Amino acid sequence: MPTTPDPGLLQLLYLYFIPYWLFRDVSRGDQMLREQNYRYNREQRKYLPGYLLKWTILCALLLASHHLAKALALQLTDWASLFQLWALFSGIGFTVGVALMSNIMVAWSFLTFIP
């Protein structure tokens, strides 16, 4: 009996934080398949607020981390370059998170309010 390998940590993090794996492509197939996929996506929209909450918490932590790194860079001048690098990466992570949150909000709004 063939067994499937356990998913790795990166794949589990992807499934936990990125909601795109829940949805089907509605741009391919005949009209009936497109309608089925659209109905399926409308049923799956109920999970999007949970993903939005996860990203809101993560972005708040990243923003707090950014401000902490900036404050530490001013206090500890010997380690300033390390803290500036930390601030850079936490700021980039925050920016990516905000972009993903806006994408999730648009997808949820579209699947909820557009018939």
Rank of each mutant, 00 (worst) to 15 (best):
Q84M: 05
N41R: 07
A73I: 10
L85T: 08
G97Y: 04
Q44L: 02
L76R: 10
P5S: 06
L82I: 10
Y38R: 14
P49S: 10
L9E: 07
P5Y: 03
W79L: 15
L76Q: 11
F83K: 05
M32F: 09
V26L: 03
L52D: 07
A80R: 14
L74T: 14
D25L: 03
F89C: 08
L74S: 15
L76A: 09
S65C: 14
Y20M: 08
T56C: 00
L48N: 11
D30W: 12
V98P: 00
M101E: 12
I18H: 10
A73Y: 12
A71F: 11
G8F: 07
R45Q: 14
L74V: 11
V96Q: 00
L52G: 03
Y40Q: 05
S102L: 13
N103L: 10
I18P: 00
A71E: 07
K54T: 09
V26H: 04
Y47I: 01
Y47Q: 13
Q75W: 15
W55M: 10
G97A: 06
R45M: 12
Q31R: 14
G91T: 06
L58E: 00
R42H: 05
T95N: 06
R39P: 00
V98D: 01
N103K: 05
P49W: 09
N41D: 10
D30E: 14
Y38I: 02
Y47G: 03
W21M: 01
L82G: 08
E43W: 02
G8W: 05
G29L: 10
T95L: 13
M32K: 14
L58C: 04
Y40N: 08
L76K: 11
F17K: 05
R34Q: 15
G29D: 04
S81C: 01
S65F: 13
F17Q: 05
R45V: 11
L33P: 01
R39Y: 02
Y38T: 03
I104S: 02
Q84G: 09
I92W: 07
L53F: 12
A60P: 00
E43I: 00
H67F: 15
L9G: 00
A64I: 12
T95K: 03
L63Q: 08
I57S: 01
L52P: 00
L33G: 01
